[in-house]
């Protein structure tokens, strides 16, 4: 990335975005993102925009146009289990391949990792984490817990100040991603305007639709080398509808847990049969494995077999 030769006016120099795109290997990465992550259309669009912007910034750099390091700090908002952490991990990969962060690792922290227990404990703790995240992405889950408006002596404020300082002065050394529920994040940003202005990308993660949750389970099953029978699929569809009505529904996370429990029930069922079983039996998840869930126990009898 050398400086442009002063002899040629910048307007006449050309650069092929396609070669740049190919060199950055960003294509396969985005394709992977499309394949591996179900749904999340607005998020994917946003990531594609960011990737395109980074590519153009790089092209500008190569042509010697002014391009000051772009602000890459992001805020991910959304309900639990909507893939914020997963996307953050991908983000580290994308930024790394584009050459905007040097190492491409993700350091995932919460309030406990940043804020100390007594006076003078917070700053070293926060700095330690920041040092560890240098060259990569610092992912702060449930960032709003850093700010406790009801307690003005709370050490969280100290961590926030250090964070803000590093976010501003060492933009090319690390990227910060804040994540949390939307309403609480909004309130957090209202009380910390410094944060809002330092974060360029606000990305909202929508809840998954029922069909998307189903295809998530299918992907999980495929990865774990299980198969769902046709009836199991129907049962799963019922399950998703029922589970959504219950408290603490955490989107993909709930569904993944449900899938893991159905594997347990399948194992139990096979052991109880006790006879010779085939490989097909070992991979197949039947409707009974799903209908055995306690979610169905509390629901109306019409959906149980």
């Amino acid at each position: 990335m050398g400086d442009a030769a002063p002899a040629t006016p910048p307007g006449s120099r050309r650069i092929d975005l396609r070669t740049l795109y190919a060199d950055s290997e960003i294509g396969p990465l985005l394709a992977e993102l499309d394949n591996d992550l179900v749904g999340l259309e607005p998020v994917k669009r946003r990531i594609r925009e960011i990737a395109a912007f980074l590519l153009v910034t790089r092209a500008r750099e190569q042509l010697g146009l002014s391009s000051g390091a772009p602000t890459l700090h992001m805020a991910f908002t959304g309900n639990p289990g909507t893939g914020k952490t997963t996307v953050a991990l991908r983000m580290a990969g994308i930024l790394h391949r584009l050459g905007f962060i040097r190492k491409g690792h993700l350091v995932s922290v919460t309030r406990d990792d940043l804020v100390g227990q007594y006076i003078g404990h917070t700053a070293p703790k926060t700095k330690e984490i920041l040092k560890r995240a240098m060259g990569g992405v610092l992912f702060i889950d449930e960032a709003y817990y850093l700010h406790r408006p009801e307690n003005e002596k709370d050490y969280g404020q100290e961590a926030i100040e250090i964070l803000l300082q590093v976010m501003e002065n060492q933009r090319d050394d690390l990227t910060v991603i804040l994540a949390g529920y939307r309403d609480r994040m909004d309130r957090f940003f209202e009380s910390n305007p410094g944060f809002r202005s330092r974060i360029a990308h606000h990305v909202h993660f929508p809840d998954f639709a029922d069909a998307e949750l189903l295809s998530i389970v299918e992907k999980l099953a495929l990865q774990a080398e299980y198969r769902l029978s046709e009836e199991a699929r129907v049962a799963l569809r019922d399950y998703i509808v029922q589970r959504r009505l219950q408290p603490n529904f955490a989107n993909a996370r709930s569904i993944r847990n449900a899938f893991d429990r159905s594997r347990l029930r399948q194992a139990m069922r096979l052991v109880e049969i006790g006879a010779e079983i085939s490989a097909d039996d070992l991979v197949m998840i039947e409707a009974a494995d799903i209908r055995g869930s306690s979610v169905f126990a509390n629901s109306l009898p019409k959906s149980s077999p």
Binding site: K131, M134, G135, Q170, D173, L174
Partner: peptide, 17 residues
Amino acid sequence: WGLPMFDLHDAAGVMQE
């Protein structure tokens, strides 16, 4: 000057110290 730094990935953290 502080404790030895483990688990770092990038020189920026050490340069800061």
